[in-house]
Amino acid sequence: MSKYLLKLFITGQTLRSAQAITNLNRICEKELAGMDCQVTIIDVLERPQLAEEEKILATPTLIRELPLPVRRIIGDLSDTKQVLLGLELPPQSAKRREQ
């Protein structure tokens, strides 16, 4: 079973930040169900040095640190198809068809 290490960078408690968190939680529950999935949420207003270290420009930014290679997805994660593409996961519908 592969381990998923995800970091979500947001800017403050905004509607967009809240949407990104909601979307990420939904994807984790549905698409990464049964996997070891660890999510860290980082607010760049509180911890700007982490944004500097990761050289992040846009928020929200989701970084998949594990499994390698590192992947980045920019945006509020509302486009699930793009998120799955970024995480290199087959869409849930395709998986169901396989079963």
């Binding site: 800017t11 967009r16 990104a20 760049v44 700007p48 928020t59 992947r71 509302s78």
Partner: peptide
């Protein structure tokens, strides 16, 4: 190595935060 995928709306809040920092 990086060509980020875009999903939904975004802003450049992190850039501004880095400048202020």
């Amino acid at each position: 190595e990086e060509d980020p995928i875009i999903s939904g709306n975004y802003d450049l809040g992190a850039l501004l935060a880095r400048i202020k920092y």
